[in-house]
Amino acid sequence: MLRFLLQRLLVMIPVFFGVTLVAFGFIRALPGDPVEVLAGERGVSPERHAELTAQLGFDKPLWQQYLSYVGDVLQGDLGVSLVTNRPVLEEFMELFPATAELALCAIIFAIIVGLPIGLIAAIRRGSLLDQGMMSLSLVGYSMPIFWWGLLLIILFSNTLNLTPVSGRMSFLFEVEPVTGFMLIDSLLSDEEGAFASAVHHLVLPAVVLGTIPLAVIARQTRSAMLEVLGEDYVRTARAKGLSPWRIVAIHALRNAMITVVTVIGLQVAVLLAGAILTETIFGWPGIGKWIIFSVFSRDYFAVQGGLLLIALCVMTVNLVVDLLYGLINPRILHQRS
């Protein structure tokens, strides 16, 4: 197990360098000059422009810039935002809990709804229920996030007046940030109604962000279950006289979970990508919105650092998923050792 963990960590090293390269190259490939964006509409004199460019190190050859960037990163220094003049890591850590809260709620929503849908569809294969749910999930999967988000805002916020349009918390409440998770912080604070307000703000974005993962989880659970239900050991379980519930929930599901956990792990990347759109639509102050802002303002260091940290999150989740395999299916654990 330890050896496996070390192996996986070793594999992460080239991936890490790949990500730094992509993050570094990507933002520089975009047209635009960070110094000019910084200066704004008033513009800047050529002398001042050259001075600032040199100060930020943008006058050096690209490979030198890259090496000094990687060198800084290895020392834990992600640089300072050009716009806010604050360390990128600090900004990221401040905004990350908002995104994490949103993504976590979205994936929980996707699992709680998607997994049973997939299960029922597999058990009732070919039925109207199955066909209906699978068609719906295809619609959910194909729905562009921004469009879906706007539709829900129109329905629930505008027409029905049930949910707020944007933000994490009503302005009426002042909640002390302790964990950064509004749901927890609002419970910790003495403000009455703050928790309800946090939930209100969270529901719609979480549903929007969770829709695609939900559809994917439902479909993959269904196909994994269908495969497993045809296996010999399921027939054995039936021959033992076990109840259908036990056969599905214990014997089949445990085997299907390998696929489902993989899918859930992969959806984390989708969630973080989707968070960029969702946060923009719902004015959610998380890293998605922050990255968009940083790209628009050509904040090289913020974009590089942000992308790197997001990639780290995804890699960590994938590592956790790999470790989970061993818990679900002992055969995999034994093959490793």
Binding site: E231, D232, Y233, R235, T236, A237, A239, H251, R254, N255, I328, N329, P330, R331
Partner: peptide, 12 residues
């Protein structure tokens, strides 16, 4: 059954 290797559940 015929296939003992696949007739037992690998997870238990």
């Amino acid at each position: 059954f015929q296939e003992p290797m696949t007739s037992l559940n690998p997870c238990f």
